[in-house]
Simulated assay, not measured.
Amino acid sequence: MVRAGQKDVRGIVIAAVIIIAWFLLLAYLLQLPVNFTSPVTYLFVLLQTHLYTGMFITAHDAMHGVAAPGRPALNKALGTVAAFLFAYNWYPRLLPRHHQHHRHVATDQDPDFHHGSFWPWYFSFLKQYITWWQLLLMAITFNVLKFFFPIENVVLFWMLPAILATFQLFYFGTYQPHKGEHEPGNKHKSTTQSKNHVWAFLSCYFFGYHYEHHDKPYLPWWQLYKEKT
């Protein structure tokens, strides 16, 4: 329990754990001999994908000021680092777009919204957030990494998890909660997953509880499950 007047450091610790775990696991996997017949290889891909998703969720929490509450400089630093390590996303560019999403959810002014099916919406989503500078930096990084590590490791454990994480974030955090028509009384134009905290964490760090996030955006991801009824 955090006492009155005491700053809550739990968000800082959780953000640091995700960033450090992502880095340490990637460093290990880049030099791990790849065995394509072993299920462990694919479990590592899924684990690194989940940590990539956690990196973006950390940046997202920073956008709401809850990665390091009460410490705006540190909060921004954590968001900037987490976003940058996820395919060179630029936090100052993401920040206004995300708040625009919250202000104009599921309207033509919402950068995350698209009137269409999954694939057109996904590519519209990517166009909103991926720049040519990111693609250039990713290409440079790929060519540098393959000089030091086997190319199959770079593809399996650095490139593929980043791509899979964009699907994870998009499907559970944008498409599934905002697709279709919403009832007139649904002020956030969002649906929510059925209550299952294990699945909610594994699928997208509780962001399937999406109505709850829009209703209380000041809650960090690791507190969001408490709002699920």
Results as ranks from 00 to 15, higher is better:
residue 176 Q to W: 15
residue 36 F to Q: 10
residue 9 V to D: 00
residue 142 F to S: 05
residue 136 L to N: 12
residue 227 E to I: 08
residue 90 W to A: 02
residue 106 A to D: 08
residue 116 G to H: 03
residue 51 L to F: 11
residue 106 A to W: 10
residue 185 G to P: 07
residue 225 Y to G: 04
residue 175 Y to M: 02
residue 200 A to Q: 08
residue 215 D to L: 13
residue 132 W to D: 07
residue 191 T to A: 15
residue 95 L to K: 11
residue 193 Q to S: 14
residue 227 E to F: 10
residue 34 V to W: 00
residue 117 S to T: 12
residue 70 G to C: 10
residue 57 I to S: 00
residue 104 H to D: 05
residue 217 P to S: 11
residue 40 V to I: 11
residue 15 A to F: 01
residue 122 Y to T: 09
residue 152 E to P: 03
residue 106 A to V: 13
residue 187 K to V: 15
residue 135 L to R: 09
residue 139 A to K: 13
residue 101 H to E: 03
residue 146 K to E: 12
residue 113 F to E: 06
residue 33 P to G: 01
residue 20 I to P: 03
residue 71 R to E: 06
residue 50 H to I: 07
residue 97 R to I: 06
residue 2 V to F: 08
residue 39 P to H: 12
residue 163 I to F: 14
residue 81 V to T: 02
residue 141 T to E: 12
residue 174 T to D: 15
residue 198 V to A: 11
residue 163 I to D: 12
residue 105 V to Q: 07
residue 60 H to N: 03
residue 67 A to V: 03
residue 24 L to N: 13
residue 205 Y to Q: 09
residue 14 I to T: 11
residue 198 V to H: 11
residue 115 H to E: 15
residue 47 L to I: 09
residue 18 I to F: 12
residue 101 H to S: 00
residue 112 D to E: 12
residue 82 A to G: 04
residue 6 Q to C: 06
residue 172 F to N: 14
